[in-house]
């Protein structure tokens, strides 16, 4: 009797394990494709599309909130990202700095709500939508230095690699898996580490794999792979 009970326990465990493993195996791990996170309700429904969205060429006064944005650079508000490992959330002061001078929207419900927090000197309890486990150390500063400052790519493109097309969103929603396999899918690609003529991009002293890639005799671009040591992220 007990033997049977034990065996059934055992088999159940096996089944559950195998089932979950099979389900897991179906997930593409190495991919850049989208993986939408949950829709998160924020205390104030912040309209990213209005702030960062493209201007509506047919509306020179830009007055219709549903048809065009302000094209504000991500880094105008998310100013910590280029200076720190964590991007942080803009201080409330930043919102008020502009909005105290924008009378036209002053009475809109979201702005009224915003000023309530400001008058009470209370922080807005935003919910975190891009979360990494505590054992992962992602560095915003380094990515911004490379893509925006060294390679002169547009901010929205560079931020968008991980955060998706935020300028189309209201409140931000996670749109990439942010898993290790997903990180590696970029980092496994060959990156150009030298420009034309063999000059290191941005004169950076660091090289992936900790060694300077051998000079290309043809004088062309040299490429190398991403970080290959666990502690680059797991420290």
């Amino acid at each position: 009797m007990h033997r049977i009970l034990r065996l059934s326990f055992f088999l159940m465990g096996l089944l559950v394990a195998a089932g979950s493993h099979a389900a897991d195996a179906q997930k593409p791990t190495l991919t850049t494709e989208d993986s939408l996170g949950p829709q998160v309700t924020q205390p104030i429904e912040f309209p990213h599309y209005r702030h960062a969205g493209l201007r509506n060429p047919n509306d020179p006064t830009n007055s219709d909130p549903n048809k065009g944005g302000m094209e504000i650079d991500c880094q105008y508000c998310h100013t910590y990202a280029r200076r720190s490992a964590v991007a942080g959330i803009p201080p409330l002061q930043k919102c008020i700095g502009c909005h105290q001078n924008i009378e036209s929207v002053r009475q809109k419900p979201r702005i009224v709500e915003l000023f309530k927090y400001w008058d009470a000197k209370k922080a807005v309890p935003w919910k975190k939508v891009h979360d990494l486990p505590d054992f992962v150390r992602f560095n915003h500063e380094r990515h911004i230095k490379r893509f925006i400052e060294q390679q002169n790519r547009p901010t929205q493109e560079a931020c968008g690699y991980c955060h998706g097309d935020v300028k189309e969103m209201t409140v931000a929603r996670r749109s990439k898996p942010l898993t290790m396999g997903w990180c590696a899918s970029c980092h496994q690609k060959e990156h150009p580490v030298t420009g034309e003529g063999g000059a290191p991009i941005g004169n950076q002293a660091y090289w992936y794999k900790f060694q300077k890639p051998a000079a290309d005799k043809s004088g062309g671009e040299i490429k190398a792979q991403g970080p290959n040591d666990c502690w680059h992220c797991h420290k």
């Binding site: 394990a17 979950s20 493993h21 389900a23 897991d24 997930k27 993986s35 996170g37 949950p38 998160v40 309700t41 942080g88 959330i89 803009p90 201080p91 409330l92 002061q93 927090y117 400001w118 000197k121 209370k122 922080a123 807005v124 309890p125 935003w126 919910k127 975190k128 939508v129 891009h130 979360d131 990494l132 486990p133 996670r174 898996p177 942010l178 898993t179």
Partner: peptide, 20 residues
């Protein structure tokens, strides 16, 4: 095994408190 996906990341559950 079933925890290998995104389940350890708590999207939308933690609060990030910014400075005023």
């Amino acid at each position: 095994l079933s925890g290998c996906g995104n389940t350890s990341i708590e999207d939308g559950k933690e609060t990030v408190v910014s400075y005023v």
